[in-house]
Amino acid sequence: MTTSSVSPTASSASTPGTGLGEISLQPPAWSRVTRRLFGHRGLAIGLIVVGLAILIAIFAPLLAPHDPYHQDIANRMVPPVWHDEGSWEHVLGTDKLGRDTLSRLLFGTRISLTIGLVVALISGVIGTTLGVLAGYFGGRVDAVISYIITTRLAMPVVLVALALASLTGGSLTTVILLLGLLLWDRFAVVSRSVTQQVRDAEYVFAARTLGCSLPYILLREVLPNIAGSLIVVMTLEMAHAILLEATLSFLGMGVQPPLPSWGLMVAEGKAYMFFQPWVIAIPGIALFVLVLAINLLGDGLRDLNAPGGRN
């Protein structure tokens, strides 16, 4: 039990108190951060899995037992180790060209994470810029940008992406650019509404009366105060982008062979799915776990970021 200390001497008016009238906006002490992080189970799981995925992506060349592109025609369709015919040589088996599934899976992490991150960054920049401008200026600017957002929301992402990819031909870069240019809507919607709240905060008025430049006000006064909400959107869009990449690759309009994209691995295995189901199950499960983890992370961050009760 903590005893709140009330010193008997009349402390000066300026003692920074732990008074009642305070709201907890301050960045919490480090111990409190960790407690909150791990007090939230979903968030902890998400963090651990995503952290692992990032480590795997970085160290894939060290971790992978084989070259992911090496074809070994003699060892095609080897089942995973837990299967009767499996071997420790290829822990998760091989595909129809005799490439080691585990190695491809590990290298595939790089593709998924790159896509997720870069797409979220591109769309984040576009969406946040539009949303902040609309929210800050309001009026006509807002009307025009809201119109653009609505137009974008009316487009079916998968169909548009498929159509464009079939025009330009699929590749890793096209997928990233396409998705980056398509997935900014949620960033725009969220940043617009949060900016509308921050715009009328008196500290923004104070900066304006000082004659601070517009970029200063937007970047230094507004952005830090909406960043929390944007990080949450960012995780959601990462997961979204990873799934869409897999979809496009599966449909043959995304990442092209022989790159070890998980979506592509599922597509390449679909002919075997009845008799050798692991060929598609393994990349499918990897995809599921990563996307779930990122979503858990996003949910958790949203809870953490939510304004708590008073004190």
């Binding site: 008196e202 500290y203 008025f205 009366t209 000082l210 830090p224």
Partner: peptide, 30 residues
């Protein structure tokens, strides 16, 4: 006249002490 010149002559004190300070900045910065 530009805002900066005006700012040297007139300064505000606002109503709500909770929203008049940017919560992400230290007092010295503010």
């Amino acid at each position: 006249a530009d805002q900066k010149a005006l700012a040297r002559h007139i300064q505000p004190i606002f109503q709500d002490p909770y929203s008049s300070l940017n919560p992400r900045k230290r007092i010295a910065q503010i």
